[in-house]
Design a protein around this nucleic acid. Structure first.
Length: 389
DNA sequence: TCTGGGGTCCTAGGACCC
DNA sequence: TCTGGGGTCCTAGGACCC
């Protein structure tokens, strides 16, 4: 989807089109109506507090504002920009709509988060060449239909990359935004892909890009030309080999239509760094609430988990985690809270706390869990309280 | 003016087992 | 007499993605 969150907000507030708009912040108020019923938008200059920019319109980006930037910094760069709170419920609603629209045309879809999917076009590529010399005619037609159907369903535009694999499609869907359809085959890689910076490869982040730059590698073409053994020496067997393959546009991953969740977590950053003793009550209440929210999420997803973990971020941004694997999986808030409490005890608390998080992993479905309990003669459905963790 | 929240995958060491 | 070589599980941290 093209500039997804910002586009959803502009559907609601079309009067903001063409203006610098920044979406994000932790307690950004929604626009209010004045006595005459006119909407009053907040300016970024009034923003106080923690939180980062979730996204910004093109006009705000032109002022130097970018995703993940601190809101206070963004306010210094673009004081007159309009600021809106992120409304994830609405984005998820639009997300479901666009995915349903695509699914009505082509069913083999891999979910890649709120605004991205992979679609297996294999059944729609046309080996017979109904148009001589163009095996992708049918695929391009389908892509146009998808764009139309998505626009009808949501009012939003999307960009599509049609290529032999997920790696290239991810890369190429970005090349003609907004509203583009980009087709790339292996033969096009040297001309289309190799001039791009290596960091455009999905999986090459800031750290790897810096490392590559130290090796004199800036572009994907330079990466493709690099000695594979050199890459393996610098990045390890697995990542080094993968970098080499990726630079040549090779990727064999299938489109995964279903995936089981691996972990469920909740975390929160405090408005101010909390003192372990002085803010003990607030910390305890927050901790309990996080455990309850994780338990709710587990229940909603129909899973339980054996590994309970905590995450702390201190005032200096140093982050530590501890976890504990129980003999039996749980989804119970109190059991989670108890195990997470044990984890917390193993962390030396000498600095103020910025962030607190709770995670449950080693998940299995509730059915799977009940079956295990039955097989082992375990206390079906009431195992949770019997184990003193 | 410090840097959100929800995830996945990988690495690496140690315990433990056969 | 100075000790192999698999394998799995657990734990902590980090890179990366949306």
């Amino acid at each position: 989807m093209d500039a997804f969150y910002a586009s959803v907000e502009l559907l609601r507030y079309p009067q903001l089109r063409g203006l610098p708009v920044v979406i994000g912040g932790r307690r950004t108020p929604a626009p209010r109506r004045d006595a005459d019923g006119h909407l009053v938008f907040q300016r970024l200059r009034n923003y106080v507090g923690r939180g980062v920019v979730t996204t910004a319109t093109y006009e705000a980006r032109a002022l130097g504002v970018n995703s993940a930037m601190g809101m206070m910094k963004a306010a210094a760069l673009a004081p007159d920009a309009i600021v809106l709170p992120a409304d994830f419920d609405e984005y998820r609603r639009k997300s479901r709509q666009f995915k349903a629209a695509v699914a009505s045309l082509t069913p083999i879809i891999e979910d890649r988060g709120i605004d991205e999917i992979y679609i297996d076009f294999t059944p729609h590529t046309d080996a017979q060449e109904t148009r001589p010399g163009d095996t992708l005619f049918g695929a391009r037609e389908l892509a146009r239909q998808i764009q139309l159907r998505v626009r009808e369903a949501t009012g939003l535009s999307c960009s599509i990359g049609i290529t032999p694999n997920k790696l290239l499609s991810k890369l190429c869907s970005d090349l003609n935004k907004p509203g583009g359809i980009t087709t790339v085959d292996f033969a096009d890689i040297p001309a289309v892909v190799w001039p791009l910076p290596a960091s455009r490869i999905n999986g090459v982040g800031p750290k790897a890009a810096t490392q590559l730059r130290k090796l004199g590698i800036e572009t994907i073409g330079q990466l493709a030309a690099a000695d594979k053994d050199l890459l393996i020496r610098h990045f390890g067997m697995r990542f080094g080999t993968w970098l080499h393959e990726a630079a040549h546009g090779r990727d064999e991953r299938p489109v995964e239509t279903r995936r089981d969740p691996k972990s469920v977590s909740r975390e929160t950053t405090f408005e101010r760094d909390l003192h372990v003793r002085l803010d003990r009550q607030l910390l305890g209440e927050t901790f309990t609430r996080l455990c309850e929210r994780v338990a709710d999420d587990l229940k909603r997803k129909g899973v339980v988990g054996r590994t309970i973990g905590v995450k702390l971020r201190f005032e200096d941004f140093h982050t530590v985690t501890r976890d504990l694997t129980l003999p039996v999986a749980t989804g119970d808030a109190r059991t989670i809270r108890h195990a997470a409490g044990q984890c917390l005890k193993r962390i030396p608390l000498t600095k103020r706390i910025r962030l607190l998080g709770v995670r449950v992993s080693s998940l299995m479905s509730i059915e799977e869990h009940d079956q295990l309990m039955a097989e082992h003669g375990g206390p079906r459905g009431q195992s949770l309280e019997l184990f003193d963790v």
